[in-house]
Structures are given as C-alpha cells and as structure tokens.
C-alpha cells in the first residue's frame, strides 16, 4: 500500500495539471467568497445573514475544480491506456484505488484548508468589524463551518473519483458529478410539495453537505450540519464502493 501510495504521489507531482487545478480551487473559492462578501450591505445590526456561510460561498465554484482533479486522476489513465501499466505495476486493484483516494484526500485537504482559511481571512478584511464572535476561529460554529467545508471538499473529491472510476470517460463523469451537485438542487425547487422539497434538500449531496457552513438559524435547516455532511459522506462512500467494485470486476 505504501508503495502504491508513493507511486500515486509521484504520478500527481510529475504532471502540471493537478497543481494548477489545486491552485485554481484556492483562487476560485477565495475570489467568489470575497466577491460575495463585498456586495453585501452591512449595518450596525449585522449583515442580514450568515456571514460565515457568505464568506465560504466560494466552495460552490471551488468544488467544480476539485471534481475535475478527481475525475482526471482516473479517467486520464483510462483515456491514454496507462491504467494497464498501473495495474501491471500494482495488480491489487483495491490497493491502486485506495492509493488514489488517499492521495486525492491529502492534496484536497491541503488546498481546501488554504481555500477556506483564505476565504475567512478575506471575509474578515472586507466585512466591517462585527465584534469578536463573527468569523473568528475561536467561535465554535465558525470553526465547525471552516473545518466541515474542508471535509466537504474532500468528500466531493472522493465522490468524483468513485463516479469517474465507474464511468471511465472524463466528460461523462464530470457531467454526472456536476449534475448531482448543481442540478438536483435546482430541480428540487420545481417540486411544490414542501415535504418532498425538504426531503430532496436532505438527500442531495451539495445542499445537505453545505449545511455544515450554516452558523445562524440552525433550526430552519432541513438537516443538521453534521448529519448533512454525513449525507455527502454517504454519497462519496456509495460512489467509491461502486467504482471500486467495477474496477475489480471489469477487464482493464
């Protein structure tokens, strides 16, 4: 396993695109969050909303770049045929898959932490001084939102890796992933039955997972923050399981 891990890490650092995608994730996340905080109107009473969630809004965009990275890790090998070289070097396919997942988790954790801390810092600089509590890592809910958002990005990466391993084609994989993330919430809005709508918000990977960012009005959430992140984790686990099983069963 450690050898496979070393190989995957070497693979990742010997091409340029993962680094650019990770830097892009940080830049996109911070930029969109900063943009969102700079347009909000704040008064002495506050900013009329959840400033933590607002500052972290960039993950809506950042997650797309994480998804590309995760998809390319596997579909890039399928499109070139290099997957056969990989599986010849490490015949235990579960080991290859786990090594890829661990490598991805590592790099997304680093980039995600940078992106999230950058967003919070940008929020603190842009928003007027809101007292000690807001956007401070010493505040429990804010810390949970920050930490949880990094976990969320990792889970989106793993979800994408699983989908891409099952689907193999990069364009189709990214379509499936972005569809799950972006389109399901939009479609849930057409459902006028509020119970159904709430249910969809509870089970969709993005809307449930991003509950982790909410620091105010927790009672109005369809799902509690950690349970929501758990739903996203469930999606990631299901995708990894499906991808892993198919990788083991199919001819390479």
């Amino acid at each position: 396993m450690s050898l496979a891990l070393h190989a995957e890490w070497t693979k990742m650092r010997t091409v340029a695109s993962p680094l650019w995608l990770l830097l892009g994730t940080v830049a996109a996340t911070v930029a969109l969050g900063a943009g969102a905080t700079s347009v909000v109107n704040c008064t002495a009473n506050g900013c009329g909303g959840d400033t933590t969630k607002l500052s972290l809004m960039g993950v809506y965009l950042g997650q797309a770049l994480v998804a590309i990275l995760a998809v390319l890790i596997i579909s890039g090998e399928y499109s070139s045929g290099m997957i056969r070289t990989t599986l010849t070097a490490v015949p235990r396919r579960a080991t290859v898959f786990a090594a890829k997942a661990v490598t991805l988790t590592g790099v997304v954790a680093v980039a995600g932490t940078a992106a999230v801390l950058g967003s919070v810092l940008a929020g603190r600089l842009i928003l007027p001084d809101l007292g000690d509590r807001a956007l401070s890592l010493s505040d429990g809910p804010t810390l949970r939102a920050v930490f949880g958002t990094v976990l969320y990005l990792i889970l989106i990466g793993l979800l994408s890796l699983g989908v891409a391993t099952a689907v193999r084609d990069s364009a189709t994989s990214i379509g499936v992933v972005l569809g799950l993330l972006y389109i399901v919430p939009i479609i849930s809005q057409t459902i006028s039955d509020p119970d159904w709508q709430r249910l969809l918000e509870k089970i969709a990977p993005m809307s449930a997972g991003l509950a982790i960012q909410v620091t105010t009005d927790l009672d109005s959430l369809p799902i509690s923050p950690w349970a929501g992140l758990g739903v996203t984790a469930g999606w990631a686990a299901a995708a990894l399981l499906a991808g892993g099983l198919l990788l083991r069963r199919r001819d390479a």
């Binding site: 969102a36 347009v39 109107n41 607002l54 590309i68 990214i174």
Partner: peptide, 27 residues
C-alpha cells in the same frame, strides 16, 4: 473534455444557482 464540460456548465448554471442563494442582493 473534462475542463471544457466544467467550464461551460459552470458558466451557464452557476450564475443561476448564485442568484438563487438568499444572500444575493438583487443588483
């Protein structure tokens, strides 16, 4: 393909999603 699909999808769909977020001022 992955980069192209993401770019175009994000360019068309993400603005719509952002407009639907309750924080977004009408302007």
């Amino acid at each position: 393909s992955a980069g192209a699909v993401t770019t175009v999808l994000v360019a068309i769909v993400l603005p719509y999603i952002l407009t639907a977020i309750p924080f977004m001022p009408a302007s």
